[in-house]
Amino acid sequence: MLGLGLGIAALGVGIGLGLIGMGAMNGMSRQPEAIGKLQVNMLIALAFVELVFLLTVFIAPGSFAGK
């Protein structure tokens, strides 16, 4: 059950990371001179989305162990 939950979390976070990457790539190809700024903002967004999965990884075992 825990594995399934983590899989679902990974699915959602993967879609989110992909969307961020897609947006950044679109922006970069449209405006190559803004690559530096876009990369920085993309990394910040990636970090925030990644944190959701990490929190899931750390919180989920505890909430499953209690049941």
Binding site: A47, E50, L51, L54, L55, V57, F58
Partner: peptide, 13 residues
């Protein structure tokens, strides 16, 4: 928490 967990999770993972 977010700063430390992010680093810990990525490296340990």
């Amino acid at each position: 928490v977010s700063l430390s967990l992010r680093l810990f999770g990525n490296i340990n993972g």
